[in-house]
Design a protein around this nucleic acid. Structure first.
Lengths: 100, 100
DNA sequence: ATAGTATATTTATATATTTGCATTCGTCTA
DNA sequence: TAGACGAATGCAAATATATAAATATACTAT
């Protein structure tokens, strides 16, 4: 894996994904979306006990930065991980924040 | 893996680690520190072509948030990953930013 | 069309981050 | 001890981000 593969554009893209994930509430959201799960905005806002508009805003950020995808089905919009592999990132962090 | 394990403190800690990593230059730094490699501030600032003070600042952030460790040896300070597992995060991102 | 529910966007204010420069601090060596 | 070198810090300007409230849009059922 060569360094030059990580050109400026890809670094920016990666940084944007991380930046989107770098928020306690958004990590909690991602935690609920592991293993290909799909949840609606309302389900998430009820699960986490935060405002609907706040939830939608967080989801919008995650989607905008390429972490999540969404699919509308009737009145609901389901959100899910764009890359299943991103569950690994959350799990890594979980392990790293275990014994400190 | 239960949700309640991810209490507020650990979410904050995880978010802080991600925030520390969520910067193009810092991702580039981490890329150079894969596989247990240890580099000095000067080596990194020359590898990346950025100011020494900027480099030191970025390294300080990564260390402060628990991503890196450092060890002084004479005039030099070597920086290295606190958890080898964090290489996985970088690799995940690399794969996720491949074909977009 | 209208009402009701589900999402999304906009706005403004407050707060934080990035960066380079100059300076300072530690450590080694002549 | 002085000078050189590597690293860390303080500062300030530009830029970016968070937050919450208000408003707007999209769809469904009647």
């Amino acid at each position: 894996m060569k360094i030059q593969e990580l050109d400026a554009d890809r670094l920016d893209m990666a940084a944007n994904m991380l930046k989107a994930m770098a928020h306690p509430m958004r990590i909690a959201i991602l935690k609920h979306l592991e293993a290909g799960k799909k949840l609606t905005v309302t389900e998430i806002h009820e699960l986490l006990g935060i405002e609907q508009s706040t939830t939608s805003h967080h989801l919008g950020i995650l989607k905008d930065k390429g972490v999540l995808c969404s699919r509308r089905e009737g009145k609901n919009t389901f959100y899910y991980l764009k890359h299943d592999i991103l569950s690994q990132v959350i799990n890594c962090l979980q392990r790293c924040t275990c014994g400190e």
